[in-house]
Design a binder for these strands. Structure first.
Lengths: 331, 331
DNA sequence: CTGTTAGCGCATTCAA
DNA sequence: TTGAATGCGCTAACAG
């Protein structure tokens, strides 16, 4: 682990020259000879600039923090993959933080934000966590992009074509002659939950079908909560013959609930879920899904973060790749 | 974002005092009065030490890199979760790198290692990636722990009770009267692959059953490759009535292959897979699994990384929590 | 008991 | 075409 100064001494030049060679300073005019000598020594000594020192000077760390709520969830995995690729392409590394890590994790994150430990923050927002972290980030001027959810505070966000996806899934059910179509929504109060419900509602309205609130039930994106919500929904609205499930993971719970209540899928209860994951093909009844551009979501979030702030006028960016219906046996 | 010096000026003390207050230096004796004044100012100014500067001085970054091969794979997700929790508890953050990110990602990683950008490295090893990164890490003296696989070079590793798990799964099949039990192994040449095969072999030997190499087929941990391997295995060894599948994800492909070849599960072909994931319950035939302590693996890896090097004499640490058989319909 | 001093390794003026 | 000087913000010795 040689230092700049050591390389310089070895090459018989000043540290400044080495620095500029390493950083490919275009304005530097030195003899081809010296240039090559320096490069040679850099190469064979395996020199790499010390990151701490560089960060101290440049106030850039090359790190972007990505906060998700459950690294175990395959949906987030796909997002992470996209983010990772975009970050790598831009010479940044991704620091991941599972928000379910609790207060310890949050504290760590706040420290990173305040201590200029990261160049940017991609936050899968929900009301609880985001408030504190965000407030801090904003105050400390760390560029931040919200993932999936807008918080309505003018913070830049990157979102999926949620309404379109929900409408697509719902229309598919309508096309298959369903008249009473319920909606197993994601967590209440989040913007994408509202957007998806709106899409569901729009499709139903267009078809002249009922879409009152009693057909909607909220659920967290877990198997257990999907099961609970589905049970409640089917008990309160026994006429329902089909469900738009706004999240694949809760859809698994929903399917189990339907089965346990003696409903055959799709005969007695058709199901369409938003988000396609590889597992969808292997579920006990292969699950019809609306594929969403998750990878792109991650990618765009990182790219957005790195554009000079406010480059694009709009605060919220919708990932443009269209959702796609993948028809399987559950509908 | 005030600096130490600014806080010091505000409090009318020297930077050194503030530094020591912030870092809770026990040997510092100052009047309770000054202490409280400094703390008060620190609090209300929201001061947090600049990480770059601190790193430069202390040569610690508070960052640990975790390299996995597919963030999308729920198995790795669980490991990441454990690692994340352990890291947070120790005041470290996790920098994740998906090795499938390609050369860009690897280059980034090497830069981090060489540039003292991380305090430690947890590497889910496979032959390709690990060589370069590891060599670099070793040379630069970055503490490294191998995940799951030993590379036979004396590098510290944390592994699962692989042999025991394979034996447990195989014995379960033997107990159910299967005589011809194949093994769909993980990637060839990795230590845990060998260990699992050994466990399978041990269970068969103990029962006096055949366990020759023609009953073994290697597969990557993907659905597609699991399908391919299973097809080959069933075609070459049509007498097989049961399979120990060394990875859940490839098990999904294997189940599909069995079904497509007209084999009913479990009647014509029983399947047990290593690693339990929530989805296992929802597969078209619920999958019997051997649950492995994945979360603990992640946790222990981080803890191991942070123990003073060589604290424990042994190079390879086996996660002690025992595997557990979860019996479902596929066997 | 507290303050002063001296770098950590780098990038960047400005001067030569 | 190159080099010397300076400071990023912090901490650890050492002075006072």
């Amino acid at each position: 682990m040689p230092t700049l100064a050591e390389i310089a001494k070895l090459a018989g030049v000043s540290p400044a020259v080495v620095s500029r060679v390493v950083n490919k300073d275009k304005t530097l005019r030195i003899s081809k000879e010296t240039l090559e000598r320096v490069q040679e020594i850099v190469r064979e000594s395996g020199y790499t600039a010390n990151r701490a020192a560089r960060s101290l000077r440049s106030t850039e760390t090359g790190l972007i923090a990505l906060v998700v709520h459950d690294v175990t969830n395959p949906v987030y995995g796909e997002i992470t993959k996209g983010a990772n690729a975009a970050a790598a392409a831009a010479g940044k590394a991704i620091l991941i933080s599972d928000a379910s890590g609790g207060d310890e994790g949050t504290a760590r994150l706040m420290e990173l934000v305040s201590g200029r430990g990261i160049d940017g923050l991609v936050l899968q927002a929900d009301q609880s966590l985001s408030d504190q972290v965000l407030a801090r980030a904003a105050r400390e001027n760390v560029p931040t992009v919200l993932l999936q959810a807008e918080l309505g505070d003018g913070m830049p966000a990157v979102v999926l074509p949620d309404k379109e996806a929900a409408r697509l899934g719902t229309r598919h059910l309508i096309d298959r002659q369903h008249k009473a179509i319920g909606c197993l929504a994601t967590a209440e109060g989040l913007s994408f939950t509202e957007n998806r419900i709106e899409g569901w509602r729009a499709a139903l309205s267009e078809a002249g079908l009922p879409c009152n609130d009693s057909l909607v039930r909220y659920s967290l994106p877990t198997i257990e909560d999907g099961r609970r919500a589905m049970e409640e929904l089917l008990k309160m609205q026994p006429d329902i013959s089909a469900i738009l499930c706004c999240n694949v993971v809760s859809a698994l719970g929903a399917m189990a609930a339907a089965r346990d209540l003696g409903r055959r899928i799709p005969e007695d209860c058709a199901i369409v879920a938003i988000h396609d994951i590889p597992m969808a093909d292997f579920v006990f009844v292969p699950l019809t899904t609306v594929e969403m551009p998750l990878y792109e979501l991650g990618r765009v979030a990182i790219e957005q973060l790195m554009t000079p702030a406010g480059a694009s006028g709009r605060e919220t960016l919708v990932v443009s790749k269209a959702p796609r219906l993948i028809h399987r046996a559950s509908s």
